[in-house]
Simulated scan of single mutants.
Amino acid sequence: MATDTLSDVLKTVRLTGAAYFDIAAQEPWSVHSPARDLILPKILPGADHLIAYHVVTAGRCFASLDGGEPVSLEAGEVVMFTNADPHVMSSDAGMRADPPTADMIDIAEAGQLPFHINLMNGGTVSAKLVCGYLACDSRPFNPLLEALPPMLKAGDPRKNDAGWLGQFIHFAVAEVADKRAGSESVLTKLSELMFIDVVRRYIETLPQQDAGWLAGLRDPAVGKALGLIHARLSFNWTIEGLARQCGASRTVLAERFMLFVGIPPMHYLAKWRMQVASEMLNRGNANMATIAAEIGYESEAAFSRAFKKMMGVPPSAWRLGARANASHPR
């Protein structure tokens, strides 16, 4: 059930690749990624959220959020910045405050992606990286993004990783070397799968006493409640009915749901309905009555009132805004 819930969230928030580049670097080197609001319009105009990632395919380096502690990385490891916060990749931990030898703004404006960044000066390669940005919807409600830490590290350089992360590195290196037609599309899809694999690995490492939406997926009562809400969104759920289906009392479910998810079950249901509705408004021409029925509202008017109350604009205005954003060229 938890896996289905995670898949449902990933599907509805429309995870898509936005950009890709590779780096070959010689010490000393550093690459700076600026604030999301600066880089996002250069990478994918119209998107509302970016996730940055860097996969080390050879050598070693350091990653750090601006003002944060550096984290060491070796070949076979990936670091992901889930909010695309300002960060630095560098050959040495002490370089994080130095002027960078490359900046993502300059790279984004340099030309057609995928893009190769050569930070060599006639010496030996000290690190190779495959990097990129993933775009996704964070509005109106993305419980996955809200549950992730700002920086994630995954992979194990000490062994041959047979999981998807290892396969991503293998295929990414091949795409970089071959430079075949369609490389950007291939790497985009690979990046999406890599993100899912990193999230699953993160879930597996969460302490049993941890709270949050991801930890809630593992809780018997909360995980089942989340699964039921996502699987039967249009059902006329009540807290009593949901608790009965989960084999728990109303009080226990309400308390555990609040502990893990941070909001009551019925509030979560309302927010997720609006997320699904906004995604339907973004991607298609379904009429308002169809959308209302799909997410559990008896009438178009009731749906429109609920949508405007939560989103601040009526569904028709939201759809017009989505189409306007989609019309902007990359």
Rank of each mutant, 00 (worst) to 15 (best):
R283P: 00
T5G: 08
S7N: 15
G67F: 02
D85W: 01
V78M: 07
G46M: 11
G132Y: 01
L259T: 12
F81E: 08
S33T: 08
D219M: 04
E294N: 04
L134T: 12
V276F: 07
A292S: 09
S30W: 02
L242N: 03
D22F: 10
L187P: 00
M80P: 00
G216V: 08
A102P: 02
S191V: 02
H230A: 15
Y20F: 12
R201I: 09
P100M: 07
R256T: 06
G284T: 13
S304T: 12
L50T: 07
H116V: 05
F257T: 05
N160R: 11
L119H: 08
G262Q: 09
P70C: 10
P28E: 06
D197I: 01
A225H: 10
A248T: 15
K153Y: 01
P220Q: 10
A19Q: 05
A84E: 01
M310A: 15
T238S: 15
A93I: 02
P99S: 05
A58Y: 01
V31I: 13
L145N: 12
T3L: 07
V9C: 11
P329S: 12
A301W: 06
V13N: 03
C61Y: 02
E184Y: 10
H328P: 00
A93E: 13
V222R: 09
R60M: 12
F307I: 11
L144I: 14
G122V: 08
A52F: 09
A19C: 13
K179M: 12
A324S: 08
I107W: 03
Y133K: 02
M266E: 10
P114S: 14
A18E: 01
D22K: 04
P86L: 04
P34V: 11
I117C: 07
P149E: 12
S278W: 11
G163N: 05
D85E: 14
T82P: 01
F260I: 01
V222C: 10
Q275V: 06
F235Q: 13
L259W: 12
T205P: 04
M1Q: 08
L152P: 00
A154V: 08
G155R: 03
K11V: 07
C246Q: 04
I196G: 05
I291S: 01
V88L: 14
W318S: 03
E146C: 05
V198S: 06
R232F: 09
K309M: 13
E204Q: 06
K179W: 09
P314N: 07
L152M: 12
Q112A: 15
E175L: 09
P265F: 13
P157E: 12
D85Y: 02
L50P: 06
H49V: 01
P114Q: 10
L6T: 09
V71K: 10
K42L: 15
T251W: 06
A2W: 04
S183P: 00
A254N: 14
